[in-house]
Computed example of a mutant assay.
Amino acid sequence: MNIDELLNRYFEGETSSEEERELRAFFTSGNVPDRLAVYTPMFAYLEEEGRKERQPDEALIPIDEDILSMLDAEKVEEKKAFTLRSVLYLVSGIAASFLLLLGLNHLLNPVDPCFCSDNYVVINGRCYTDIHKVRSMALEALQEVATPADEYVDDLRSLFDDNE
């Protein structure tokens, strides 16, 4: 397969692992044409990273058991501190959410029904904002205290009769 076709397939994500190894080997061989030299640093980097993954760490130094136990103790303390901090953040988040919900509940369902209205009437300790309800209640109250017309006329007649 042609190197140009292989490069196109590589950039389209259609190459196999073996074909990618061939590309890395070609670009790290040193026999790269000038027109393809711009890809050499990229494939050299990929080859180097692949080598690092395949090789185990050779620079490991044997560590004394006392030092190792001290490192383990430090890790345990660090993990406890991290866990305590996580719990603290979790509890703080729950408390903040609870306060936010209470505030929203108070805004959406106020204790005073007249809280959201500029026009209201208080009758017998209750707040009314519906104009039709207020009108009907006012008419009922007026009818309760009104004197019937026949009683009023009788009272007037008695007044006129007394004057004559």
Rank of each mutant, 00 (worst) to 15 (best):
residue 65 E to S: 14
residue 45 Y to M: 04
residue 50 G to N: 09
residue 13 G to L: 00
residue 102 L to V: 05
residue 81 A to Y: 08
residue 131 I to W: 09
residue 7 L to C: 03
residue 139 L to I: 13
residue 146 A to N: 11
residue 53 E to D: 07
residue 80 K to I: 07
residue 15 T to P: 00
residue 91 V to M: 09
residue 28 T to S: 00
residue 34 D to N: 13
residue 21 R to I: 00
residue 124 N to G: 05
residue 147 T to S: 08
residue 27 F to N: 01
residue 111 V to Q: 11
residue 114 C to W: 01
residue 81 A to H: 08
residue 48 E to P: 04
residue 132 H to F: 14
residue 62 P to S: 14
residue 19 E to P: 04
residue 22 E to A: 08
residue 129 T to N: 12
residue 164 E to W: 12
residue 116 C to P: 03
residue 58 E to P: 05
residue 160 F to Q: 12
residue 103 G to H: 09
residue 33 P to E: 02
residue 152 Y to G: 07
residue 58 E to Q: 14
residue 74 E to M: 12
residue 15 T to I: 06
residue 45 Y to P: 01
residue 63 I to P: 04
residue 147 T to C: 06
residue 17 S to P: 05
residue 108 L to R: 12
residue 39 Y to N: 02
residue 136 S to Y: 12
residue 87 V to L: 15
residue 100 L to F: 14
residue 27 F to I: 02
residue 160 F to R: 14
residue 142 L to F: 09
residue 5 E to G: 03
residue 82 F to W: 06
residue 157 R to T: 10
residue 97 S to N: 07
residue 145 V to S: 12
residue 61 I to E: 10
residue 127 C to N: 01
residue 64 D to M: 06
residue 92 S to W: 10
residue 32 V to R: 02
residue 114 C to H: 01
residue 89 Y to D: 12
residue 71 L to T: 08
residue 80 K to N: 10
residue 54 R to H: 06
residue 133 K to E: 14
residue 25 A to D: 05
residue 138 A to M: 09
residue 89 Y to L: 11
residue 41 P to I: 03
residue 164 E to F: 13
residue 76 V to P: 04
residue 100 L to N: 09
residue 106 H to F: 12
residue 119 N to G: 05
residue 53 E to V: 15
residue 44 A to C: 05
residue 63 I to M: 08
residue 31 N to Y: 06
residue 48 E to W: 02
residue 57 D to P: 04
residue 123 I to N: 06
residue 73 A to D: 08
residue 22 E to I: 04
residue 68 L to R: 11
residue 25 A to L: 04
residue 27 F to T: 01
residue 1 M to D: 05
residue 45 Y to N: 01
residue 62 P to V: 12
residue 16 S to M: 01
residue 52 K to S: 04
residue 114 C to S: 13
residue 34 D to L: 13
residue 8 N to Y: 01
residue 111 V to I: 13
residue 131 I to G: 06
residue 22 E to K: 06
residue 62 P to R: 15
residue 141 A to R: 10
residue 78 E to Q: 11
residue 50 G to D: 06
residue 9 R to A: 09
residue 91 V to E: 07
residue 133 K to R: 09
residue 71 L to R: 09
residue 96 A to T: 10
residue 147 T to V: 15
residue 93 G to S: 06
residue 86 S to P: 04
residue 143 Q to F: 10
residue 59 A to Q: 15
residue 43 F to Y: 01
residue 124 N to C: 03
residue 115 F to A: 15
residue 73 A to F: 13
residue 26 F to G: 02
residue 157 R to D: 11
residue 33 P to K: 05
residue 105 N to H: 15
residue 126 R to E: 13
residue 53 E to G: 02
residue 149 A to D: 11
residue 48 E to L: 04
residue 111 V to R: 15
residue 58 E to K: 12
residue 108 L to G: 04
residue 4 D to F: 11
residue 96 A to N: 00
residue 133 K to P: 01
residue 134 V to T: 07
residue 163 N to G: 14
